[in-house]
Design a protein around this nucleic acid. Structure first.
Length: 460
DNA sequence: CTTTATGACGTAGGGAACGG
DNA sequence: CCGTTCCCTACGTCATAAAG
């Protein structure tokens, strides 16, 4: 957090101390500690990027709890990241998976915070205007949070010729399709869809990625070759690859080709959630895909969904619930909770395009991909009946992702932080604060063996 | 309105395997 | 055999979307 945000945060806690009066290891004031550590920073035998303040009373910690990614009883106060001056050699445009055109500053290589920075995203057209960055300008660069390169501001405007100004192209630099920027959106987008090489490549990479179809070895360079040589046009073509074709490509030997083919074979029985995520529908990430997979029995049901009707019903339920709330009655379950109008429109659009339906048909009918149907509500599937799990520490026999999937498949829910709502905390090696919190709240704690025993029980 | 969740972005660094 | 190339992931911030 930045300085002012930290002050706000401390003020917001409603604690009986102020930032200046709170003490840390005998030093007066959090900010004083921050300052004194800042002075010692260079002399330390290790690198630090800031200081963490924690509320050191367990009852206050409990009160404050957690949000998804962070505790609310602790906050990082970072030192201003190192900055450097460099020149903007060019501002180019990148085409992403969803067609978004992202301006990227190509920089004269410069060392910032221990790494050499040569590129920095400028996010979108408005951002370029706001920072008023032109080609040839000298800019201040830093690594936001000491990680991601960022152009802070222009330090000295270069000799600016009219052609040095960044203009968002009106035609996609890769496929030449029209570029549009929709009302209220920050991104300008290529309308070429999957006919655009750049979008096709990104879509294929996403399709194959670990959290989607998990085809190991199908990376950027390989996809580049496959698309440029027109060996692969759609995800379905991936499943037509044979070792001979692959082995003929650059940097691909017999071994690599075999490995890729084996990985492709292994990917043929995805869960519905993974398959939907792999399709790369705009706005549909892992979480939304999971919600859809839970709601629809299988792929067929999803393909035949009447989105206008669902949106209508959702609105109806929301209205009814507002009325019920006024009357103090129990609310009805929401229709497709977590999926609003914007996402429904995106889904409707994706599934109404003939091209997309064709690819899905090829994958499932032609290439033998069997999307796992949801299991019928057997005893096993419902074993955990909505019980809430938190995973912490390192598991030995399985990864945390695998454990999470197993729990979900049995009707359990996996969340990121421990609260009174949590039913079980599964603690692996080196479990930290979550385990402490579970003990504090009296939440049941399982070790890996205990979790496995629960899985075993569900089989019988 | 506020709060919460999520995806996109760039670089380093480690493991696997290519190819001379 | 060994230098080189490729794949993959973590990390922090911000924009955006949904729900409260």
């Amino acid at each position: 957090q930045r300085h002012s945000e930290v002050l706000d945060w401390i003020a917001d806690q409603g604690l009986p101390v102020s930032a200046e009066r709170a003490t840390v290891r005998g030093l007066p004031g959090l900010l004083g500690f921050h300052r004194s550590m800042g002075e010692k920073r260079d002399k330390l035998r290790y690198a630090i990027d800031g200081v963490v303040y924690k509320v050191n009373r367990l009852d206050y910690q409990q009160l404050l709890g957690f949000v998804a990614r962070a505790p609310r009883f602790a906050v990082a106060h970072k030192y201003a990241p190192e900055e450097a001056l460099t020149e903007v050699i060019d501002i180019e445009v990148q085409v992403g998976r969803t067609g978004a055109l992202t301006p990227v500053a190509r920089l004269k290589p410069v060392s910032v915070g221990g790494v050499t920075v040569t590129n920095a995203t400028l996010h979108n057209e408005d951002e370029v205007r706001r920072k008023d960055v032109w080609r040839g300008d000298t800019v201040i660069v830093r690594r936001a949070g000491d990680v991601i390169p960022e152009v802070v501001s222009v330090s000295k405007a270069g000799p600016r010729a009219p052609s040095d100004r960044f203009e968002m192209p009106t035609r996609c630099p890769v496929c030449g399709s029209e570029v549009v920027r929709l009302e209220g959106e920050a991104a300008a987008r290529c309308t070429g869809g999957l006919f655009c090489r750049a979008q096709r490549k990104q879509a294929l990479l996403h399709f194959a990625s670990r959290r989607a179809m998990d085809i190991e070895g199908l990376g950027e360079k390989l996809v580049d070759q496959l698309v440029d040589l027109e060996i692969v046009r759609t995800p379905a073509d991936i499943y037509r690859l044979d070792p001979g074709t692959l082995a003929g490509l650059e940097r691909m030997g017999e071994k690599s080709a075999q490995n890729v083919v084996a990985a492709i074979e292994k990917s043929k029985t995805p869960t519905l959630a993974r398959f939907v995520y792999a399709l790369g529908i705009p706005g549909v990430g892992e979480e939304v895909a999971r919600i859809l997979a839970k709601h629809f029995v299988g792929l067929e049901a999803l393909l035949h969904a009447d989105w206008a009707d669902i949106a209508e019903r959702k609105k109806g339920v929301q209205k009814e619930n507002a009325a019920r709330k006024r009357r103090g009655e129990v609310a009805l379950p929401s229709v497709l909770e977590g999926i609003g109008p914007a996402l429904m429109e995106s889904l409707e659009k994706f599934f109404s395009q003939e091209h997309n339906r064709e690819v899905i048909a090829q994958l499932t009918a032609g290439q033998g991909i069997r999307v796992q149907a949801r299991r019928s509500p057997s005893a096993a599937a419902d074993q955990f009946g909505g019980k809430i799990f938190v995973l912490t520490g390192t598991l030995l026999g399985m990864t945390r992702d695998e454990a999470a999937e197993l729990i979900r498949s049995r009707g359990g829910k996996v969340v990121g932080s421990v609260s009174k709502q949590t039913d079980y905390v599964v603690a692996g090696d080196d479990a930290g604060s979550k385990l402490e919190k579970a003990r504090k709240l009296g939440v049941a704690v399982l070790d890996e063996a205990g979790l496995r025993r629960m899985f075993e029980e569900s089989k019988s």
